[in-house]
């Protein structure tokens, strides 16, 4: 028996002739915040719909809490809260009434409504019609609905999509505060790494239906490699000198800085000496690290796979 809350084995979804999701092997352990990343159209929503049984897999299996989704659907879904794609809500009802519907259907205590309203900070707006809510409020209501049943697993599909930076920040804080209080496992999808960077513990990256990376966020960070940027008074002359000496082509960036791929200390010291000996003025030697977003984009482009 494994401790995975979510485990899919070779999960596939085929629409007509193309696979929206192909051989997906997700593994999400208890207590993790799993960032499910991928560009638009890469298959995130399709995967999540299969996790919830909203659509049928073409092949493969979904196991949640160690039980097969197909055979134990209702038992499993009692422990799952979900927000899938764009928010959905009864616009002609108030926030409170929206929650009340789901509360009645889940048969949980009415007190829970106030609790989740408080968690997503909608208590003040609870008696306003939802069609008058801002997008951020609607998203928070969606999260509140997902939280009503005190889920052990929370699945959020792009909860920050379409929000302004302040709204994104608010949702991020909200999500970060959850696992500590309840010990729940969270799967959250996004097309921007920056949005989940500060909360995810594990990351899965999907591109064109294939899971091309799945590991802790530290492993992802270590993939970001660095280069050395050197600024001199005559970049072209320096380039010729260095290329002759090291028999290696050297790039110039847009601002006529030298970009070196070898970054060890000895090499840099050698480079510096040579430039100085050739009567060039060295203004700056600095390390540039590619951002996590660059790593993400590179992975998607297939540079690491």
């Amino acid at each position: 028996m494994c401790s995975n809350i979510i485990e899919t084995v070779n999960l596939c979804k085929k629409y007509k002739t193309t696979y929206a999701v192909k051989d997906l092997n997700l593994q999400v352990k208890k207590g993790e915040i799993y960032g499910f990343l991928g560009p638009n159209g890469s298959g995130k929503t399709t995967s999540i719909k299969m996790l919830l049984g909203l659509i049928k897999a073409t092949a493969g299996s979904v196991t949640l809490f160690g039980k097969q989704l197909e055979s134990d659907r209702n038992h499993i879904l009692k422990k799952v809260g979900a927000l899938v794609e764009s928010p959905s809500y009864y616009g002609h009802l108030t926030g409170y009434e929206n929650l009340k519907i789901i509360q009645r259907m889940l048969n949980v205590s009415e007190k829970r409504i106030e609790e989740v309203l408080n968690i997503v900070r909608l208590t003040k707006a609870k008696n306003k019609l939802v069609k008058q809510y801002s997008l951020g409020m609607k998203q928070r209501l969606g999260i509140a609905i997902a939280l009503l049943g005190k889920p052990e697993l929370l699945i959020l599909d792009e909860p920050t999509n379409g929000l302004d930076p302040a709204g994104i920040h608010e949702i991020r804080d909200l999500i970060k505060s959850l696992p500590e209080t309840d010990g729940i496992t969270i799967l959250i999808s996004s097309h921007l790494l920056s949005e989940i960077d500060q909360m995810a513990t594990q990351v899965g990256i999907i591109s064109e239906g294939n899971l091309i990376f799945q590991d802790s966020i530290e492993v992802l960070r270590n993939k970001s490699d660095s280069q050395i940027r050197v600024r001199v008074n005559d970049a072209n002359k320096a380039k010729i000198i260095l290329e002759n000496k090291f028999d290696d082509s050297i790039q110039l960036d847009a601002n006529s800085n030298l970009i070196l791929n070898k970054t060890d200390d000895n090499h840099i010291s050698l480079v510096n000496n040579m430039l100085v000996d050739s009567n060039l003025s060295v203004y700056r030697i600095e390390e540039i690290k590619s951002s996590l977003e660059d790593v993400f984009l590179n992975i998607i482009k297939g540079e690491y796979s």
Binding site: G53, R73, L77
Partner: peptide, 15 residues
């Protein structure tokens, strides 16, 4: 249909 809520209902533990 209007509220787009089928996906919420279908993900609830009700038949």
């Amino acid at each position: 249909h209007e509220a787009n809520t089928w996906k919420i209902l279908f993900a609830l533990p009700i038949s």
